[in-house]
């Protein structure tokens, strides 16, 4: 037989995702249902709290916006954290076997995408309940934004997975950064409500624009922030090329540091 073929790389990617998934929810009573439960419970909590802040007026529109914001933020948060740990989580294997390390990064980011795919079930339920009906253009634009976001997450992971091996406290720093990103990404509020210097600052946050554009596209069929999304796509592409160079340069000696 021939080892390390393209078919093997594909199987390795699937097996690593499958293993990650099993291990993450192993020994827990609700198991994989936590994938759905976590963002949903988070949504309920924020919905109750912010509905109270908004004067107790619970609207389906606010619910749909909030849920979509949470699901996209969860994708980005998990993509950043899983991607960063892609190499350190496989340290034992990296020291003993030479396999294409990039597959480890791909599988980690993919894991966040799989979780996202499950979470969209909640969105579908919302659609069936009649809260929104996306247009074809809006849906396609949402798919474009999503693809660009996932690509950007992968590109960031090419840097962060290597950096974590060398600077271990990056893990704690990123947890704090992602908390900050949560508050500054218009997850539980809308960019449209923000004005002044703070509003300007929020509009500089790419994730805030991604969430805003996704909401408008999917829930209202409006296509906005096109220029910003194109710029972000080009930046993601540049990040990918730089990340690839950085990863290839540093991965050769990673077993010495891990």
């Amino acid at each position: 037989m021939v080892l390390h073929t393209k078919a093997n790389h594909r199987d390795l990617l699937i097996e690593l995702i499958r293993t990650n998934f099993k291990l993450r929810y192993n020994n827990s009573i609700l198991g994989f249902f936590w994938v759905l439960m976590k963002p949903f419970l988070y949504f309920l909590m924020l919905f109750v709290v912010f509905t109270a802040f908004r004067g107790g007026e619970a609207s389906a529109e606010y619910g749909a916006n909030l849920l979509l914001g949470i699901i996209i933020y969860t994708l980005v948060n998990e993509g950043v954290i899983f991607g960063m740990h892609a190499l350190t989580d496989l340290a034992g294997v990296i020291l003993k076997v030479n396999f294409p390390r990039q597959v480890a990064v791909t599988s980690a980011v993919f894991m966040a995408v799989v979780n996202f795919a499950f979470n969209t079930v909640i969105l579908l339920i919302l659609a069936i309940l009649g809260s929104f009906a996306p247009t074809i253009e809006g849906f396609l634009y949402f798919v474009f934004i999503l693809s660009m976001t996932i690509f950007a997450l992968y590109s960031i992971s090419l840097f962060s997975s290597i950096l974590l091996v060398k600077i271990r406290d990056l893990h704690h720093i990123m947890e704090l950064v992602m908390q900050l990103v949560f508050w500054g990404s218009a997850v539980f509020y809308s960019i449209d409500d923000m004005s002044g210097a703070f509003g300007q600052l929020i509009r500089l946050n790419p994730l805030a624009l991604v969430i805003h554009a996704s909401r408008k596209a999917l829930l209202e069929g409006d296509i906005i922030h096109v220029k910003a999304m194109i710029i972000m796509s080009l930046m993601s592409l540049a990040l990918y090329f730089l990340g690839n160079l950085f990863f290839k340069k540093n991965i050769k000696r990673i077993a010495e540091f891990i």
């Binding site: 080892l3 078919a7 093997n8 390795l12 294997v93």
Partner: peptide
């Protein structure tokens, strides 16, 4: 599960 994971890491296909 480890047979599949380890075999694939060593370069074999799942099949």
């Amino acid at each position: 599960e480890n047979i599949y994971l380890n075999g694939i890491i060593l370069g074999m296909t799942r099949k």
